[in-house]
């Protein structure tokens, strides 16, 4: 790498390195897969077992999913930050995007529940925002489509004739908006970086 360079070679080095730096995102697939599975299970449990116990009707599956997901995400995040070789400004933006989403989500959740409403539709619509933007920032199309799918799912849930249809739409959105992009992202991450 010490040979004299022509201007063309210099430009190629710059372009190649900047391209590589652009691809140096933290591993995010874990979060999409984790939350996709947990929230699908929570919705399924809420719908299928609603008649079995009062606690299920009052959101116990969502509380379990939230606490378990939060604990596992924190554990994974701290483990990853110890291993990260690079601090990318885009990672920081994505981190704060999701942090602000969680704050807004909790506020919507509590205010809607206090007013006696169902937060499923506003939360589904809101979920589309960070998913869509993460996809745009990372230039990863499946997440962009996933974000748009959450918006469509929120509208479909609002118009759904019964709770069963609403639950099915939510689960389908989680599957196609989080889990499938999560699997594709994991494959991309594994291809980009050696294990």
């Amino acid at each position: 790498m010490d040979a004299p360079m022509t201007p063309e070679q210099s430009l190629r080095v710059i372009e190649r390195m900047i391209d590589q730096a652009k691809q140096s995102f933290s591993r995010l697939s874990f979060y999409f897969l984790l939350w996709g599975v947990l929230l699908t299970l929570a919705m399924t449990a809420t719908h299928v077992l609603a008649d079995e116990a009062q606690a299920l009707r009052y959101g116990a599956p969502w509380a379990v999913a939230g606490l378990l997901g939060g604990a596992l995400s924190s554990w994974y995040g701290s483990r990853q930050s110890r291993k990260e070789q690079v601090l990318n400004p885009m990672d920081r933006i994505i981190h704060w995007l999701w942090a602000s989403f969680v704050i807004a989500l909790l506020l919507v959740l509590f205010t809607t529940l206090l007013a006696g409403g169902d937060p499923a539709v506003p939360i589904t619509l809101m979920t589309g925002i960070p998913t869509f933007l993460t996809g745009q920032i990372m230039r990863f199309r499946p997440l962009v489509w996933g974000g748009m799918l959450f918006w469509a799912a929120g509208v479909a849930m609002q118009l759904a004739p019964d709770p069963g249809t609403r639950a099915a739409v939510y689960c389908a959105a989680m599957m196609l908006g989080y889990i499938v992009p999560g699997i594709l992202l994991m494959r991309k991450e594994n291809g980009l970086r050696p294990a």
Partner: peptide, 18 residues
């Protein structure tokens, strides 16, 4: 104007720290 030094700086331009 050295391939490796230019590569290092180009990599660091796109990130906060590496």
């Amino acid at each position: 104007h050295n391939q490796l030094r230019l590569a290092i700086v180009s990599l660091l331009v796109g990130v906060e720290e590496a």
